[in-house]
Design a protein around this nucleic acid. Structure first.
Lengths: 363, 363
DNA sequence: CTGAAAGCGCTTACAG
DNA sequence: CTGAAAGCGCTTACAG
C-alpha cells in the first residue's frame, strides 16, 4: 500500500509538471510518453509517425489519438540522427532580385507548413572560389533532405552533380528543362516573350528592339528566342543592331538603351529582358528627352515592384513565382524519393499590359 | 599470424573506403574516428570541440591536428540532440520590404559563415490568428539556439515574452531600445530624419510636409519625431495639415500626397517616411502635373533599389542593414549566453542626397 | 502485425 | 587533466 500511495503521489506530481510543460514545453513529450499512454512499444509509435504499413487499424487510431491529445511532435534532431538525414530543405540561390527570392521563399514555406520540415537558406556567389565547396559543405553537414535551386544556380551542372553524387533530391527551377535534375519546375519564358512582342506588333510597331540578358542565364536565351519567334510569326525581320546585350542590371539597361536610342533608325519599341533593364531604358529615355510611351514603348519581364512604381507603369511579364516554389517543394517533401524516375512541372508566365506601351502614332 | 593478416587486410580496406568518403563524404568521420587516431577518449575530443578548459595543451594540439587532417566536422544533429539545443538561428520577420529582408539575411549569414550554425527563416503574419502559435512552435520544435527579429516583430511584446519564457536568446533589431530583449541593435532613425529635414531647410524650404508610417511601427514615430525635431531646431512651425498619415505602402503614399498637393498652401517639400511612399508621391505629382524637383522636393527613407530607379533619383536615408544583421547574429553566436546582462549595439543611418531635392526657386 | 535490442553521434554527470 | 557509463529521442535490423 505504501508503495502504491507513493506511486500515486509521483504520478500527480508528474501531471503537474506536464501541465506546465504543455504550456511552456520546458519538458516536451517524447515517443516514450506516447508509447506508455497508448500501451504499445515505441517502435509501433514510430511506425504510426512514419506511416509505415502493417499496423493494425485499431492500434494506429489509438496511437494517433494519444499523439493528438498530447500534441506530441517528434523531435526532428533525434529523427534526423537516426535517419541519417535532416528535416531541412535547403534553398540555394545566387540571384540579385530580392523580390524574386522572397517570393520563392514564401512559396516554399507555404508548401512546408505543418510538414515538420524547415527551410534553410544558402545564398552564394557562383564566381567565388569557395562556391562549390560551400554548397558541398552545406549539403553534407546538414544532411539536407532536399534542395531547391533558383536560376541561375539551377542550371549549374557542377552543383547538380554535387547533389546527385550525394543522392540529395533536388528541384531545379528554370526556364529550360535541366536533364539531370531529380525534379524540375519549368516556366515558359519563351512563349510569354513571343506574346509580348506580338502585343507590340498589334499596336503597330515594326521597329522593335531587344535588350538581352547575360548568355550565362538560359532565361536570357529563352527570352531572346521568344522575341525572335514572335517577330518571325508576324513576318517582321530583326536587324542585328536591334539586338543589344545587357546584363540584367539597371546600369546595363541604361547603356544598352542609350546605344539603341542613338541609332539612325531608332526603334519605336524596346523589349527589355527584365524590369531592372526596363527601368534603365526609362532612365536613358529621360536623359535623351524621349517620352514614354508617346515616342517609345517599353516592355519588361518579372513584374517586380519597380514595374508599377516607375512612371508610366511598365507593361511586363509576370511569372507565378510563389506557386512555382510551392510546386517545387511539394515535390521534395511529398513524393517518395525515387531516383529512377524524374518529374517535371510547368508554370505559365503572362503579359501584364500597363501604360508603357501604346499604339504607334503615324506621323 | 593469420589473425594479424586478416586485420591488416581489413585495415587497408577501411582506408580505401575512407578515401572515397573524403571525396563524397558518404561515410563521414565521427568523433570516434578522431578519438582513435588521437589516442584519447571521445570525451576529450568533445572537450576540444567545445573549447572546454582543463585539457592539457599538448593533448589539445594533438586532437586539433587530427581534426584538421581528417577535416572532421561534428554532426550538428547529434550535438543538438545531446545539448537539447540546435545549431539553428531563426530569423523572424513580417516585413514586406524584400530588399530589407534579403540584406538582413545576407548580413546574418556572413556572421554565421564557418560557425557551424545555419539560418532558418520564419516569415509570418502578425495579424493572423496562428501568428503566436506559429512562432512558439517554430522556436520549440527546432530548439533554436537563438532568434533574430526584424521590425515590427522586434517590437512585439508577446513574441518577446515567448522567447524569454523559453530562455531562447534573441536580438531585436529596431529603431527603439526594446527593454526586454536579450540583445538589441538600435538605429538612429530620429537623428537621420532631423538631418534630412535640415537639408530641406538649408535649400530654402519652409513649407515642409511629412507622410508618416503606421503608428504600430515605432520607426514611424521615431521618424516623425526626427522630422519635428529638425524643424523645431530651425525655428519652423509645423502646421497640423502638413502631417499626413501613411501606411508605408505605395498606395498610401499616393493618397497622402494627393491630399497634400491639393492643400491651399501647398508644401514645397515632402518627407515620405519610406521610399515606397516617396514613389507614391512621384505618382501623385505626375498625375497632378507637378514637376519634381522643380516644383516639389521629395525625400524618402530606406534607399531601396526603387530610390535610384525612379526619376529623378530620390534623396533618401540609408540604413546599414547588412552590418546591423551581422552585429545582431554575432552577439547571438559568440557571446556566452548570459541572461542577466543585456547588451545594445548602435548603428547609424545617413542621408543620401540625389536629384529629388533642390533649392527652392523664389518667384 | 508487434517488440526488444542495438545504434545514430554526440554530451552530461560522475569518477578518479 | 582524463575516461567509462548512461543518455538525448528517435530508427534500423532482426525476431517472432
Amino acid at each position: 500500500m505504501q508503495k502504491k500511495a507513493s506511486s500515486k503521489k509521483q504520478h500527480s506530481q508528474r501531471r503537474q509538471v506536464q501541465h506546465v510543460a504543455s504550456d511552456l514545453q520546458l519538458k516536451a513529450t517524447t515517443i516514450n510518453d506516447v508509447a506508455r499512454l497508448s500501451g504499445v512499444s515505441k517502435k509501433t509509435v514510430s511506425r504510426v509517425i512514419n506511416e509505415a504499413p502493417f499496423v493494425k487499424l485499431e492500434t494506429r487510431h489509438r496511437v494517433e489519438e494519444v499523439i493528438r491529445k498530447m500534441s506530441y511532435k517528434p523531435n526532428p534532431q533525434a529523427r534526423g540522427l537516426a535517419f541519417r538525414k535532416s528535416f531541412l530543405i535547403g534553398l540555394i540561390y545566387d540571384n540579385p532580385n530580392a523580390e524574386y527570392v522572397m517570393n520563392c521563399l514564401e512559396g516554399a514555406l507555404e508548401a512546408l507548413r505543418d510538414s515538420g520540415f524547415e527551410l534553410i537558406v544558402h545564398p552564394c556567389n557562383r564566381r567565388s572560389p569557395e562556391f562549390l565547396a560551400g554548397v558541398k559543405n552545406f549539403v553534407e553537414r546538414q544532411k539536407l533532405h532536399g534542395v531547391i535551386m533558383l536560376p541561375p544556380i539551377s542550371e549549374n551542372l557542377a552543383v547538380l552533380k554535387i547533389l546527385a553524387d550525394r543522392q540529395c533530391p533536388h528541384v531545379s527551377i528554370a526556364s529550360v528543362k535541366m536533364e539531370t535534375a531529380t525534379y524540375r519546375v519549368v516556366s515558359n519564358d519563351r512563349d510569354a516573350c513571343a506574346e509580348a512582342v506580338e502585343h507590340l506588333v498589334d499596336l503597330g510597331h515594326a521597329r522593335i528592339a531587344i535588350i538581352t540578358g547575360p548568355e550565362s542565364h538560359s532565361s536570357a536565351n529563352e527570352r531572346l528566342g521568344g522575341f525572335v519567334e514572335g517577330l518571325t510569326r508576324r513576318g517582321i525581320a530583326v536587324p542585328p543592331e536591334y539586338i543589344v546585350k545587357g546584363g540584367y542590371t539597371f546600369e546595363s539597361g541604361i547603356e544598352a538603351a542609350e546605344s539603341l536610342l542613338s541609332l539612325p533608325s531608332r526603334p519605336t519599341a524596346i523589349f527589355a529582358s527584365n524590369d531592372e533593364m526596363a527601368a534603365g531604358v526609362y532612365e536613358a529615355a529621360h536623359r535623351a528627352g524621349i517620352d514614354i510611351p508617346e515616342q517609345l514603348s517599353v516592355v519588361g519581364f518579372d513584374d517586380s515592384p519597380i514595374a508599377s512604381r516607375i512612371w508610366p507603369p511598365l507593361t511586363t511579364i509576370r511569372l507565378p513565382i510563389r506557386s512555382t516554389a510551392q510546386l517545387a517543394v511539394t515535390k521534395l517533401v511529398s513524393s517518395p524519393t525515387d531516383f529512377e524516375s524524374q518529374d517535371t512541372a510547368f508554370v505559365v508566365a503572362h503579359l501584364v499590359v500597363r501604360k508603357s506601351t501604346q499604339a504607334l502614332v503615324t506621323r
